[in-house]
Amino acid sequence: MKHPFRYRWGIFLTLLLWTSTMRLRAYPEFREFIVKHSQKPVNCAFCHQHSDGPEGMAAGQIGALNADQLQRLARARSAFEPGQAVDSPVLNPFGNSIIQRVGKKKFLELRLHPSELAPLLDPASDLDQDGIPDVKEYLEGTHPVNPNDGNPRMLFWVNLKRNLLPLAMTFSATVAGLFGLFHLLRGFDRAARLSITKEITTE
């Protein structure tokens, strides 16, 4: 159903007013914990859509949300208990998964003890499918929704196991190719020597 123009603007302004009365901010306590624990620079994009957090006018920030996204934001902000579906437009999948797993209420309590968040997260969850659980990425300061970021040693072994077949095939092709090439070169060499011998004999 299409809303009349003024009605849509009414919803938008009401939601904007309502959300603006809430504490519209990222929670730096978690970021500070990750930086301290992992010794790596981390920004708000660890859990949010935008690297500067939810406030602002850029894509993925509150100022750029449309009416539908503001409704999704309001629903996400009211997910106080765990287990509720969360689809906040200012959070990335990891941020949404945290709120869905622990609930907004518990999450706000954890601001005082951000280290206690890790045990509450799903130990099997791996949003970016890079083989490193999100909890481990949270503690190590690597991005949980970027498969190219992770502990290099772990990424190497995980990918090595996953790619054994292509690696074995490439290895076989390389060895076979070089074997053939070497025989070809030796063949050229023998042919060249043979022609030199023939020339000498003829002379």
């Binding site: 790596k40 620079p41 190219n148 970021d149 502990n151 190497f156 990918n159 292509p166």
Partner: peptide
């Protein structure tokens, strides 16, 4: 050429198994 073959395999394993970006901190 044998050295090239070994170098290629080492590079191939690295390129397939370890994204170069994993060596940077992610915000960078």
């Amino acid at each position: 050429l044998s050295v090239w073959g070994v170098a290629f395999m080492v590079l191939f394993v690295l390129a397939l198994c370890l994204p170069f970006e994993a060596l940077y901190a992610y915000p960078l």
